[in-house]
Simulated scan of single mutants.
Amino acid sequence: MSTADFSTVETPIGPFTALVNAEGAVLAAGWTADAENLRQLIHPRLRPAELRERESLGSITTAVTDYHRGELSAIDTVPVSQHSGEFLLHAWEVLRKVPAGDPVTYTEFAAISGRPDATRAAANACARNAAALFVPCHRVLRIGGALGGFRWGLPVKRWLLDHEERAA
């Protein structure tokens, strides 16, 4: 029976919770205080049976706090563990390389993920990403700059994009 640790920290856009495995890799994260909801986003092969609340997750909590204060690169090296098919895993790796302050369109994201005709698959990679912030799906927009969707709400996505533009 596996257990994941979680911690919630206040940010300028509300509570942010991260769940980590025993190795310290982020399994799920988002702007919520509902750790159980985050647990359900984790692929069944990685989903922990139990959750254990911690006051802090050490360097991960520090990275979240630093990012929200303007140190955008603080999230870049936080380890993440997600499970899916080859394309989604690759797309999530690609998302981690999209620079803060320089968002891409879903079409551009599909192209840099190696499948230029797979815009819907690229959008699906964003929708199925459980490790928000650390896999920055908020950096993908519709053609023309429209926000598109975001699990944590469009006001959060707008704040993140504006924050990155100001701090970049």
Rank of each mutant, 00 (worst) to 15 (best):
residue 101 G to E: 04
residue 157 K to Y: 07
residue 62 T to D: 15
residue 47 R to G: 01
residue 69 R to H: 14
residue 107 T to K: 12
residue 154 L to I: 10
residue 7 S to R: 02
residue 90 H to G: 07
residue 29 A to D: 00
residue 139 R to P: 00
residue 161 L to F: 11
residue 1 M to I: 07
residue 4 A to V: 01
residue 84 S to V: 02
residue 120 R to E: 14
residue 68 H to F: 15
residue 13 I to C: 03
residue 78 V to I: 14
residue 4 A to C: 08
residue 46 L to W: 04
residue 36 E to R: 13
residue 67 Y to L: 03
residue 7 S to D: 02
residue 166 R to K: 14
residue 42 I to L: 04
residue 36 E to C: 02
residue 159 W to Y: 15
residue 159 W to N: 01
residue 87 F to I: 10
residue 23 E to M: 09
residue 120 R to K: 11
residue 24 G to D: 07
residue 139 R to K: 12
residue 119 T to N: 04
residue 164 E to K: 08
residue 163 H to L: 10
residue 40 Q to W: 13
residue 54 R to M: 13
residue 37 N to M: 14
residue 65 T to I: 10
residue 102 D to I: 04
residue 71 E to M: 08
residue 32 T to W: 10
residue 106 Y to Q: 08
residue 93 E to Y: 06
residue 120 R to F: 11
residue 41 L to W: 13
residue 45 R to L: 11
residue 89 L to F: 11
residue 59 S to G: 04
residue 18 A to W: 10
residue 75 I to W: 05
residue 160 L to Y: 04
residue 61 T to S: 15
residue 146 A to W: 12
residue 167 A to V: 05
residue 135 V to S: 10
residue 105 T to D: 05
residue 118 A to M: 11
residue 15 P to A: 13
residue 155 P to H: 08
residue 63 A to C: 02
residue 118 A to K: 11
residue 34 D to W: 04
residue 125 A to L: 09
residue 31 W to M: 09
residue 104 V to N: 05
residue 86 E to G: 02
residue 149 G to W: 13
residue 132 A to K: 03
residue 130 A to F: 06
residue 150 F to L: 08
